[in-house]
């Protein structure tokens, strides 16, 4: 986890030397990890996406001032965390956070390397569980879930797009979510996060 990845360091150096392609590769490489971490912090998917875009744009703007880093992933996690805490003053941005959780956030605290490594580990565990659960679904099931809850299509639109009857779509999604809910039973979510906050 905390070992240096040579490839990553090359990317970092390329960014420092004005290579815009490198920042895009870095973005793609860490996107889903950061998104998963962003959800842990904000409980909001779209907001997390905005935060990620912001930190990478900022990174690019400040590329000339960047210092070499030992662990790029930990650095990016720390950026996301800092950005999130900077913005939590604006409560409308984080409408899904509970008050007590908000109050436990202290904008001043600077995360230690160790804390970031714990966050990375937790994120990796969550992703592994979710990937494992999703691997139990067929490609068709995944596609329909995406259309329904991601692209926000209604059943008629999905029927028009896929040629599958509404009733079949409904049953396919229902069965898929049944599989997922069984597979994901007991994935630690908020409890672990609370522990994480208390620790600080």
């Amino acid at each position: 986890m905390n070992n240096l990845s040579p490839e990553m360091d090359v990317l970092w150096e390329r960014i420092r030397h004005d290579d815009a392609g490198a920042v895009v590769i870095l973005y793609e490489k860490h996107y889903t990890d950061l998104l998963t971490y962003g959800i842990q912090l904000s409980k909001d998917l779209d907001y997390s996406k905005d935060l990620i875009n912001d930190i990478f744009l900022h990174l690019w703007e400040k590329r000339r001032q960047l210092k070499p880093v030992a662990n790029t992933r930990a650095y990016l996690f720390a950026c996301l965390r800092r950005k999130f805490y900077q913005q939590t003053g604006n409560k409308t941005q984080v409408q899904y956070l509970e008050d007590e959780l908000l109050q436990s956030i202290s904008a001043q605290s600077i995360p230690s390397q160790e804390e970031m490594l714990i966050a990375i580990q937790h994120t990796t565990e969550i992703r592994q569980r979710v990937q494992q659960a999703l691997s139990k679904l067929t490609g068709r099931q995944q596609q329909l879930i995406r259309m329904r809850y991601y692209d926000q299509l209604n059943y008629e639109q999905m029927e028009a797009a896929t040629g599958i009857a509404v009733k079949t779509i409904y049953n396919t999604i229902y069965n898929a979510m049944k599989v997922l809910s069984a597979e994901l039973k007991g994935v630690p979510v908020i409890t672990l996060l609370l522990f994480y906050f208390e620790k600080r």
Partner: peptide
């Protein structure tokens, strides 16, 4: 909130990185 978070993790995993 826990269930919501689970759903968001699934959505994150299904997000089209490209």
């Amino acid at each position: 909130m826990q269930a919501r978070e689970l759903v968001l993790y699934i959505q994150a995993e299904l997000t089209d990185v490209a």
